[in-house]
């Protein structure tokens, strides 16, 4: 099956009916998207499908045929970090950083819709993403800063 990931047309094997997460990680070596819970409840596996953040772990790969998938690896343009990535780096908003790709993807989707969110709007939009190291205040700050940049 053809799949469009980060602007490239790629081919995946869907014989075993992999989830989008399994296809990305095991067939396309795009391992930035992480497994966290397997039930769409933690946000570690979020990717953008036609601009909407979806948990790749419960999204069958076959359902994204003909759609555009963006993963954490696809956010840089010409070697430049996305403003949300840049803000995470500047605020130093992580400990183990395993949640960071899913957080960043979800934040990018938020800022596409609402480029200058309040901190409460950030909390509401990000509540499906878990950071078990609990660097939540720093993550809110990073997204808030990125919003200020983009506004």
């Amino acid at each position: 099956m053809k799949i469009n990931v980060n602007g490239k047309e790629l081919t995946i094997d869907v014989t075993a009916n992999p989830s989008l997460l399994e296809a990305l990680r095991e067939q396309l070596d795009l391992t930035g998207t992480k497994y966290g819970c397997g039930e769409g409840a933690c946000g570690a596996c979020k990717v953008l499908v036609n601009g909407t953040p979806l948990p790749a772990c419960i999204t069958p790969a076959v359902t994204v045929q003909g759609k555009k998938v963006i993963t954490i690896e696809g956010l840089e343009t010409n070697g430049e970090l996305h403003p949300v990535q840049q803000a995470f780096l500047e605020v130093d908003a992580f400990q183990c950083a395993y949640c960071a790709p899913g957080m960043i993807i979800n934040a990018v989707a938020l800022l596409e819709k609402n480029s200058n969110p309040t901190k409460q709007e950030i909390v509401d939009a990000m509540n499906g993403n878990i950071c078990r190291c609990c660097t939540y205040p720093q993550i809110v700050e990073a997204i808030y800063q990125a919003g200020k940049q983009l506004a």
Binding site: L30, T31, G32, T33, K34, T71, I72, E73, L75, E76, L81, Q85, F88, L89, E90, D92, F94, A97, Y98, A100, P101, I104
Partner: peptide, 15 residues
């Protein structure tokens, strides 16, 4: 800042 922070926020770090 976190050493090699960039590799974590770009998804490049291999856990």
């Amino acid at each position: 800042p976190k050493i090699e922070g960039k590799s974590f926020i770009t998804g490049r770090h291999k856990y």
